[in-house]
Design a protein around this nucleic acid. Structure first.
Length: 281
DNA sequence: AGTCAAACCTGGGCGC
DNA sequence: TGCGCCCAGGTTTGAC
């Protein structure tokens, strides 16, 4: 489940291998993953272009090409973007293959075919609906406690849903929302606009530290995630609550509880994250 | 406008 | 051993 730390790790592992590479061919193995372009047009527009940069916005990867176009990739649940220096056989789940200066290849591998691929002019990449609606990058200076407080004040849904929504802050998914709320000592069912200034401050710090820590571990590999070289991350060993329902809280020993919030599995500590605005401590 | 649930997909784990 | 069921979840879409 690639969230910001995983997508950023993919970006960092791919960047040194892709920049300066010439695309010599494209093979589309499942065209339904192409969202705004046909296989024929993708081939025509990519072939002969050079990769200039690899960026990221939220969970979107942005592969900038010569002559002003951008290949936008969202890995969703099970997508993997893999660089092979020597070429590699196509697997049953290879969805897109980009041939680089032979024999190198870039493969989009995606068991569940949820990943999305777009091709856009560089000037329009930020107008892609999924990107245009994104909140600030949590590890950038655009993300501030005051901005977070103002954004949360506009919503009365559970804080868990709001953080998953991408509009208040970009890049968090189910894993890091649960982890950040645990670190901040905030119950996931709390109404977003009920958080005190102190709680918003703790949440702000928790979001930043959990993402930075996960990035430092190369991301979290529960099932499918691997970086651009096929190497899994290590942060799953440090998770405090996600996937630990029924296990003891690492801080207080209380049994962690699981619940469905906003249609998503949610795990939290009933003692460290009490469901009451008053019980700040 | 804000909120919510369904849809998209497939493999793994489970109970029987 | 094998079948069927449920679950994982990011984003879009449509309904309320």
């Amino acid at each position: 489940m690639p969230e910001l730390p995983e997508v950023e790790t993919v970006r960092r592992t791919l960047l040194p291998h892709l920049v300066g590479q010439m695309i010599t061919g494209v093979e589309v193995l499942r065209s339904t993953q192409l969202k705004n372009v046909s296989p024929e047009v993708l081939k025509e527009k990519l072939t002969g272009k050079e990769i200039r940069d690899v960026g990221r916005r939220g969970k979107y990867l942005l592969i900038y090409l010569s002559q002003g176009e951008v290949l936008v990739v969202h890995l969703r649940m099970t997508g993997r973007l893999l660089f092979y220096a020597e070429g590699h056989e196509v697997t049953p789940h290879t969805r897109l293959l980009i041939e680089l200066i032979p024999p190198a290849e870039l493969h989009l591998h995606d068991v569940r075919s949820f990943a999305m691929v777009f091709l856009l002019p560089k000037a329009e990449e930020c107008s892609l609906p999924g990107i245009a609606a994104l909140g600030p990058e949590p590890l950038s200076a655009d993300f501030t406690p005051a901005g977070l407080a103002a954004a949360l004040a506009r919503h009365r849904s559970p804080i868990k849903n709001i953080l998953l929504g991408q509009r208040v802050v970009a890049g968090l998914g189910n894993i890091y929302v649960d982890e950040a709320l645990f670190r901040a000592g905030i119950n996931p069912l709390r109404s977003a606009n009920s958080l005190t200034a102190a709680e918003v401050g703790r949440l702000f710090q928790a979001i930043r530290t959990v993402l930075a820590d996960a990035l430092g571990s190369g991301g979290t590999s529960i099932r499918d995630y691997v970086n651009g070289h096929g190497v899994p991350g290590a942060f799953q060993q440090k998770l405090a609550v996600y996937g630990r329902k029924g296990h003891p809280c690492r801080r207080c020993g209380t049994t962690l509880v699981g619940e469905r919030i906003g249609g998503r599995s949610t795990v939290y500590c009933p003692l460290c994250q009490p469901n009451s605005a008053k019980s700040v401590k």
